[in-house]
Amino acid sequence: MSSIEREIGHDEYDPVGTLALIGLYFLLLVVLWTFTYFVEFLGGDLTVVGTLL
């Protein structure tokens, strides 16, 4: 490809950007899940409970 400025081989490549992005994604997932599961769902009305009769 013409726009390649340099060749980077396997051993000289550390995907720091990827790690950073995916780390942010991880945090986002944890926050969203926690909110949706524990607040929206468990905090909601008419939750179906076990028939312990």
């Binding site: 944890v30 899940w33 468990l42 939750t47 179906v48 076990g50 028939t51």
Partner: peptide, 16 residues
Amino acid sequence: FFIASVTYGAIGAGVA
């Protein structure tokens, strides 16, 4: 973590 939340919902919060 997800599986643990669901299990908590079932056992801790008693959702059947």
